[in-house]
Amino acid sequence: MIQLTNVSKIYPNGARALVDVNLKIGKGNFVFLVGPSGAGKSTLIKLLYREETPTRGQVQINSKNLVRMKDREVPYLRRNIGVIFQDFKLLPNKTVFENVGFALEVIGVAKREVRNRTLATLELVGLKAKETAYPHELSGGEQQRVCVARAVINNPALLVADEPTGNLDPDTAWDIMELLYDINKRGTTIVMATHARAIVNKMQKRVIAIENGRVARDEEKGGYGYDA
């Protein structure tokens, strides 16, 4: 489903974020990206939803070439990719319902359908009771659930997450991981960059370690692998 071929990314300031990366991620996989800060995990994530394009090499998702893709095609790619961030990126002046429905509203879905699908998705993430609350009235875990709901409401084939549990306490982090586990079980491919050792070790999923912009390790059912 995802294929990176000889991908290098050098930022305009000369920083070499990725060097000659080759990767294949199959449909329905759950993949952890681990490695030290600044190793290139976030850059890799950004390549997947085409926030960045590689300096060299090819990125393909579902046999679509993201490098050759025209800018005006990008929105249609993103409708099939959900993105979750460490800092949630919720709109403070919109309610939970509005924040989640926003993802459908701005791609022109009819009002009634927005309503139905938003309620269904809020049910999925366990936030139906909070639909009229504003982000600042929610706990961190709840805010991240809203973010997950917004990312999956369009039934994306791929969900990418950049340290989604980075701002959460361990118990809450586990709640989010259970949610992602469920979403993965429904067939969504998940690529998640993380520093959460306990989670990676316990989940026993594929682990790709990035160091200095290169793939240092790639194991099925791997562990976090770095000492504390």
Binding site: R72, R79, K89, L91, F102, A103, V106, I107
Partner: peptide, 17 residues
């Protein structure tokens, strides 16, 4: 700009924005 960032993230077309 925040709203626009999210719109782009969830795939709103440029013309819509």
């Amino acid at each position: 700009r925040r709203e626009i960032q999210i719109m782009k993230l969830v795939g709103a077309s440029n013309s819509f924005i």
